[in-house]
């Protein structure tokens, strides 16, 4: 279960696998949800991954102005909120309007050992990447056998 995939593809295999495992384990009842969980399909969709040093949150939020994003950490709770302005052409006929527009807010519970003072965020190609360092005591330590 806790392999260490290195490439992006294998990490996505991991994402797919954990979802499949949850589906298998809980069937139609769904996994016991976090009390802050939102419905599937909420904007923006996020993936969360962890290494020994940091927790990485990837929010798939295209076409945003990064300066309008509000990201905050309170202990291990990460909140992202913002506004996605969708310019709709007044004089055009719309056939499909699937893209999300308006205000959004997502709260995520990260592992307990994250350090809320060491957070970095970057926005690239429509993906917001928030990286939160884990505190030293949470890292696995090598125990030397005497």
């Amino acid at each position: 279960m806790f392999g260490y995939p290195t490439s992006f593809d294998t990490l996505f295999d991991e994402f797919a696998r954990i979802n499949r495992e949850l589906d298998d384990a809980f069937g139609a009842w769904g996994a016991p949800a976090s009390i802050r969980a939102t419905a599937r399909g909420s904007f923006p969709p996020v993936n969360i991954a962890a290494s020994d040093d940091a927790v990485h949150v990837y929010a798939f939020a295209p076409g945003l102005d990064p300066s309008t994003l509000d990201i905050s950490m309170q202990r291990n709770l990460l909140t992202m909120s913002g506004e996605r302005a969708i310019e709709r052409q007044g004089d055009a006929d719309y056939y499909l309007r699937e893209r999300f527009g308006g205000g959004f807010r997502r709260v995520m519970t990260l592992p307990e050992d994250v350090d809320p003072d060491r957070v970095e965020a970057a926005y690239r190609d429509g993906v917001l990447h928030v990286q939160v360092q884990r505190s030293e005591q949470g890292k696995p330590r090598q125990i030397r056998v005497q």
Partner: peptide
């Protein structure tokens, strides 16, 4: 195709997006 550079040694905790 989704291309994001990711640090090594990561494991998945949660995923809304399952494909690349």
């Amino acid at each position: 195709e989704v291309a994001i550079t990711m640090p090594e040694g990561m494991r998945a905790l949660y995923a809304d997006v399952r494909g690349t």
